[in-house]
Structure formats: structure tokens, C-alpha cells
Write a protein that binds this DNA or RNA. Structure first.
Lengths: 326, 326
DNA sequence: TTGTATGCGTTATCAA
DNA sequence: TTGATAACGCATACAA
């Protein structure tokens, strides 16, 4: 790898002059500028970003810390953020963390190598040492969809209103015996929305109407026997699921048991996964609304880094995507 | 951010001594070591990776360049690779490229900031300037699933044998009128496998038996009318699809037209997406076999970086995952 | 056992 | 218009 010194030597000028040319500074004779450019090109010279970063203090790198098994949504958001920042010359430095401890470590590890970070946090109590440290270091950061409410700059997804609306829609459709099927993690907002919805519709809540399931398609499928039991005993006619994977797993398993969807039981998912519009029947689902999360992050973080503006939190809404399953 | 000099000053020792302590070097009095450690801790000192990299010449960063709209598979592989490298203290620097030109630029941009590269390339003619440059710079790199055969170190997925086997399976099941539905990009291997399969089974190939479709679920769904036409005129009874998304889209649309799957027509996808086991009917599909691609990349690249070993290419196989759709 | 001084590849101050 | 030189934060050859 040739250095700026090599270019200078080949040109018979000083490194200072080469630096001026390469950074488009004035006060260089046109012919010299020309020659430097040509030699640099011919030598295949590329300024060393490491040395630049050391000198300049900024690295043109965005850090991303993401949690254990990332959802498709998270992965997609990372892709979007990465592409957006690429348009401004930033690369993205990424680390996945399998546990809260690793997440704290990853934040430190990534933070010192970048100008600002995006944190897809899974488990954080309201007070996190690493996050606090970031703040004292004045390193701009934003947290995406944290499971708990934080005072740090964050993006929140208002699941509660989505589930509330889901209940309302089902009731509107004449369903009265509603069931909520949730995973253990990130269930509280869903439950709150479910209960709020019930209350607003004047329906009584019973604890038997919340079922806890394992993750993913199989988690949903495994729930079928218990759900079937409730269909028979309590005449369940509407189900809200933790997400579309749970919903699809449950949907298929229920159908195999002879339950007709949506005639006998209506099913609603969450996330609007790619497959959801193409299942049989297509899945009615609750989806994030209010614009692109990635674009918001890009704007906020970029401005914070380049102009020192404060990062503002934002709550994104959710709403029903109507299809055939409910 | 405190520097090594700050720590030294606070301890009343030289930076050299601090450096020795921090890098676990011998020849430091235990009490001094103790004190340095304590002061460093208390000051919240963290060695600057940028300065370290500049001095040491290696950055402990793996670069990843990925193509335009990345598939779920690609995103997952990135996640796996990232986690694996994290266990060895490497972070991952990522850039997505929307076009071949951007890909070439991204390779340069990322390469100078990392110790080794993983390239999820979409479009590369057998000769790429950027790849060639990497080789002359002796920067270790590996290409994942390139659309064309390359002489560079690469991971290949043997789709051809998968589609060949798919044909064989369908014929075994008594199907004789086979159809291949492919996207325009990355179709050639699939077509080759399809034709090889036909030939081996002694079936005649007709060009009308290859349909070109748009991407994704909707691309598959949009194909239904054309497929239906062929079912009526040529009595198609088995379909191989470009991937599971195409398959699911087509499956649903066909069912809506009254076609029964698999009784009337068998359908096979590719990729074994998460949803494939839970569609109605569950999708028979062709999946990558032969171990984890991410783990292989990790081993090869890590050894290349740390021990200078040569990266070897590898071809991963594909095989049928039998479910109900065929 | 400890410290001084140098250099990694840049950028930028100051003097010429 | 140009160039010698310092500095960014760290690791290390060499000296003490």
C-alpha cells in the first residue's frame, strides 16, 4: 500500500502539497495538482482511513449493536440504515450480542470505533451503565424499540394501540370470545392493548384468555391443542397472535384439526411479514405505521454527528392490515 | 476520553510502563501493576483501537460487502458470520451495494478498513478489477455464492444437482409434465439442472416448459394465469420454482383457481424459508446441505488472517426437503 | 524494573 | 505557492 509519502517522493514535492491536492485545498499550482493526481492514480494510492481517523477524530463509521437472534424486521432495518449511511460515506460497524452482559460489552467495543450508534436492545433495565457511559462520552446514539421505557433517545413502537385496535375490529365483526397468544418476551404491551381493547368494548377479561407460547412458527403450531380445547369449552371465535409466525403456525395446525379460518375462528398476526399476504387464507395483521424507522434513524443520527443536534425520540404507530384471516 | 498518557501521569509512571501493564507484559513490579490497573479502571481508560490499528497494522475488523436487496438467507449468514467473529474479538464492517459499480467501490472502501473480506456478490464478470486488486494487495477474501464461476476463493451452492434431483423425485412420483418457473436473475443453474433431470429421466425438454417471472411472492402469484393455461393445454402436473417465495405465491393463486396441490399439481420450492414448513400444504423444497456456510467462512477467513493460510473454495450441495406440496 | 524516543499515515500550523 | 515539522494515541527498540 503506497502512502502519501510515496506519492510525494514520486512527484518531487512535499507531503503537505500532496495532502492539499488530495483534500481539494487551494494554493497549489494547477500543473502540480495535475501531476500529483496522476501519480496518485498510477500508484493506486488510497488514503489510510485509520490514520485519517486518528488525526481527525472522526471515523465515518456508524456502529450497530443488535440483540441475540435478530428478527427479520431488525435485519431489514439494519440493511436500510446501512444503505442510507452509505450514501453519506459512512460504513457500518456491527456486533451482535447474545446476552445483556455481552450487549454492554459490545456497546463499549463498538462505541470507541465509531461516531454514533444504533442499538437494537433486547434486555435493558431502565438504567444501563453502558448507555450512561455513552451519554457522558457524548457519543450520539439511539435505541430502537427497547422492551422497557427509557429516558435515552429511542424509537418506540406503539404495539398497545395496535392490539387494542385488533380487539375492536374483531368485536366489530361480531366476535365476542377473544384469545391472545403471546410469546413470553415482549408480551406486556400486547397484553395491555388486548385488555384495554376488551374494556373499551365492554367485554370481560379472563386470565384464561391469554396463552403463552414458544417462539416462532413451531411455537404457534404447538399451541393448537390448547387453543382447540378453548374453542370447544369457551367458544373462542377470535385470536390475536404475538406475530405472524405464531399466527401462521397456529393457523395451519388449527386447519388440520378441521377448524375453518376465518369462518369459525378469526386470526390476527403482527409484523406483516413477507409471507403474510400469501398464506391460505392471507393473514390479517397489525403492522408498524408512520413512516420508515430506518430513515428516521439516519436523519437523527447523521445530524447529531455532523451538526451536534440532539436526537429526539419518536413513537411509531401500528395499524391493521386487513386480509382474509379475520 | 483519557489516553495512555493520562493514566501514566496519574500514576507517576511512564507510558511505557502503562503499556506493559495493559498488554500483560512482564517486568513490572506487582504494586505498580496494581496501581496502574486501578487508575486505568477509575479513569475509564480504553485503548483507542484506531491508534492501535495504525501502529499494529491489523484492525481486528472483518469487512462484508453485500449486494442490493439481500435475501433473508444472506442477512442470516451475515448475522452468523458476525457472531462467530465476535467470539474472536472481531467486529464486522458492512456496506451494501446497489449496483456492480457501487460494489466495486464498496470493496475498495471496506477493504482498506479491515483485515479480511466476505463478499456477497451479485454481478461480477469472471474478471473484476476490485477483486484483482484485493489479490495483489494480499487482503484475504472469500466470495459467497457468486452468479458466475470464478477463479477467486469462493463458496458455491450446487443448485444444479438440486433441481436435477427435484425432477427425478417428481418423475418418481409419477409426474410427467414438468414446468420450471424462474426469476430472470440466477436462473441458468436451475435451468441446467432442470434440463439435465429431464434428460436423465428420458423426458423431452420443450422451451415452453420454462416460465420467467418477477421476483418474490407477488411474482409467483402473478404467474398463475399463465401456469393455469399450461395446466389446461399441456397437462402440467409438476412445478419446480425459483424459490419458496415464488412457490408460495404461485401455490396460493393456483389454489384460488381451484387447482388442488399436490393432487393435481405438485410444487417444489427452493431455500427452505422459515414459513415453508407451515404453508398449506407445507412446501416441499430444495435446501442447501453440507454444513453451515457461515462457519466455513469463519474458519477459512480467520486462519487466512491470523496464520496466512490460503483460503480454499468449497461447493455446498443441495437436497430435497420432503413435505406435502410434492 | 523502568523510561526515552521513534514511528505508524495523516492533517495542519507556521514559517519561508 | 510551498515545505519542514508537530501531533493524533499507541506500541516498542533501545537505553538506563
Amino acid at each position: 500500500m503506497p502512502t502519501i509519502g510515496d506519492v510525494a517522493r514520486h512527484c518531487g514535492v512535499s507531503t503537505r502539497t500532496v495532502s492539499r491536492v488530495l483534500n481539494d485545498r487551494p494554493n497549489v499550482r494547477p500543473d502540480v495538482r495535475q501531476r500529483v493526481l496522476q501519480v496518485a492514480e498510477q500508484l493506486g494510492y488510497r488514503p489510510d482511513p485509520t490514520a485519517r481517523a486518528l488525526k481527525l477524530g472522526h471515523k465515518h463509521i456508524i456502529g450497530i449493536v443488535a440483540n441475540a437472534v435478530s428478527s427479520d424486521t431488525t435485519l431489514r432495518r439494519i440493511e436500510v440504515i446501512s444503505k442510507l449511511f452509505a450514501t453519506s460515506g459512512y460504513a457500518v460497524l456491527m456486533q451482535f450480542a447474545e446476552s445483556p452482559e455481552m450487549e454492554e460489552a459490545a456497546i463499549h467495543n463498538i462505541a470507541i470505533r465509531c461516531d454514533g450508534l444504533v442499538i437494537f436492545s433486547n434486555l435493558h433495565s431502565a438504567h444501563s451503565p453502558a448507555l450512561h457511559w455513552l451519554e457522558t462520552q457524548k457519543i450520539p446514539f439511539i435505541i430502537v424499540d427497547p422492551p422497557v421505557d427509557l429516558t435515552f433517545p429511542a424509537i418506540h413502537i406503539d404495539r398497545r394501540s395496535g392490539y387494542r385496535e385488533g380487539v375492536r375490529y374483531l368485536v366489530q365483526k361480531g366476535r365476542r370470545e377473544l384469545l391472545l397468544v403471546v410469546e413470553s418476551f415482549r408480551a406486556s404491551e400486547r397484553i395491555a392493548g388486548f385488555m384495554e381493547g376488551l374494556e373499551r368494548e365492554g367485554l370481560r377479561f379472563r386470565s384464561s384468555r391469554i396463552l403463552h407460547t414458544a417462539k416462532g412458527f413451531q411455537g404457534g403450531a404447538d399451541m393448537a391443542p390448547a387453543v382447540l380445547e378453548l374453542i370447544n369449552t369457551e367458544h373462542i371465535d377470535g385470536i390475536l397472535c404475538h406475530n405472524d409466525k405464531i399466527a401462521l403456525g397456529l393457523l395451519g395446525a388449527l386447519q388440520q384439526q378441521g377448524v375453518s379460518i376465518p369462518q369459525q375462528v378469526a386470526i390476527i398476526g403482527f409484523d406483516d411479514d413477507g409471507f403474510s399476504g400469501y398464506s391460505n387464507p392471507p393473514l390479517t395483521t397489525i403492522a408498524q405505521t408512520g413512516g420508515d424507522v430506518g430513515a428516521f434513524i439516519y436523519e437523527q443520527l447523521k445530524n447529531a454527528i455532523e451538526y451536534g443536534t440532539a436526537i429526539e425520540s419518536r413513537k411509531f404507530g401500528t395499524g391493521l392490515v386487513l386480509r382474509a384471516s379475520a
